[in-house]
C-alpha cells in the first residue's frame, strides 16, 4: 500500500472527507488530493495528520506504507462498511453540504454530514433566522407603537368630542341650503337641512329676507326645524313668496341641539 492509499484508507476509516481534512488543516482540497495521490505532506502537517488519522509519522514518511497486524485486522473487519463510506465520501466531495441549525437557530459548526441513500441534506428550515427575528421585532415594535398611539388619539377625540350643537360648530354637523323651487323666475324657495351627524333635540330657526322684484320690497320669512335627526337625514320647508325673488339673505339665525 502506498502512502497515498494509506492516507485514503485511514481517512475513510475515520469517516472524514477530503473537505473535512482540508478544513482541519486549513488547506485546499486539492492539496489533500495531492497528499492522497502520493505527495509527501509538508513537515508542518505531519504530526497533526498522523494524530488525526491514528497512524504514525513513520507510516506517512514511508513510500510504501505497510499496515501493522492490528491495523490489518481492523481494516478487514470494516470491509463491509467501506463501500458505504466510499459512497458517502464521493457524494460529500461532489455536493455542497446542507446547513443544519443548532438550538439557538444559528448555523451549526461545519463538520461531518452524514447522508443516507444519496439524498441532499435539508438546505433550510421553516421559521425565522436570527437576523430576521431581530429586524422583525424592530419593525413590529414600530407598527405596534403607531397603532397604540393612533388608538389613544381616537379614544381621546371621542371622549373630548363636543356634546352640543352651537352657532360656532353647527357647520360641521348641519348643511343648510336655500334653493329655488323653479329654475326660472322662482316664486317659492325650499329650505333644506341635512344632518351630517346624529343630532338630538334640534332647534333651528332661520329668518330669511327675500327681495321681491315686482313689489320692489323685501319680504321676511321665518323657517324652523326641530326634532331628532340621524346622520344623512334631510328636512325641507317650502317658503312661498308673493312674487319673483332671485335670492335671499339671512337676517337671523339660531340653533341648538345635542350631539350623540
Amino acid at each position: 500500500m502506498t502512502r497515498g492509499q494509506l492516507l485514503v484508507q485511514k481517512r475513510r476509516e475515520k469517516g472524514l472527507t477530503r473537505s473535512d481534512l482540508a478544513k482541519i488543516f486549513d488547506v485546499s482540497e486539492e492539496k489533500v488530493a495531492r497528499w492522497e495521490a502520493g505527495e509527501l505532506p509538508d513537515s508542518e502537517y505531519l504530526l497533526r495528520l498522523a494524530d488525526v488519522l491514528g497512524i504514525s509519522v513513520e507510516d506517512i514518511l514511508r513510500e510504501d506504507a505497510e499496515t501493522s497486524p492490528e491495523e490489518s485486522a481492523q481494516a478487514a473487519s470494516s470491509e463491509a462498511c467501506k463501500e458505504a463510506l466510499e459512497v458517502q465520501a464521493a457524494s460529500s466531495e461532489d455536493a455542497a453540504p446542507g446547513v443544519p441549525t443548532d438550538d439557538a437557530g444559528n448555523d451549526a459548526p461545519v463538520g461531518r454530514t452524514v447522508r443516507r441513500g444519496g439524498a441532499d441534506a435539508p438546505s433550510g428550515a421553516n421559521g425565522y433566522s436570527p437576523l430576521e427575528r431581530k429586524v422583525g421585532y424592530a419593525i413590529l415594535a414600530i407598527f405596534a407603537v403607531f397603532f397604540l398611539v393612533a388608538a389613544a388619539v381616537k379614544i381621546a377625540g371621542y371622549v373630548t368630542r363636543p356634546r352640543e350643537l352651537t352657532e360656532e360648530n353647527y357647520r360641521e354637523y348641519l348643511e343648510i341650503e336655500i334653493v329655488p323651487e323653479t329654475s326660472y323666475n322662482p316664486e317659492a324657495y325650499i329650505v333644506r337641512v341635512t344632518a351630517l351627524a346624529d343630532i338630538s333635540d334640534l332647534s333651528l330657526t332661520l329668518s330669511l329676507v327675500f327681495p321681491i322684484i315686482a313689489l320692489n320690497e323685501e319680504v321676511t320669512r321665518t323657517v324652523s326645524f326641530s326634532g331628532d335627526l340621524s346622520e344623512g337625514e334631510q328636512r325641507e320647508e317650502q317658503v312661498a313668496l308673493p312674487g319673483i325673488s332671485l335670492g335671499a339673505r339671512w337676517e337671523s339665525f339660531s340653533v341648538s341641539g345635542g350631539l350623540r
Binding site: D102, A104, G105, A125, N126, G127, G136
Partner: peptide
Amino acid sequence: MKQKYDIRF
C-alpha cells in the same frame, strides 16, 4: 429552542 423563539415571533 429555535422553535420556541419562532413561535414567540
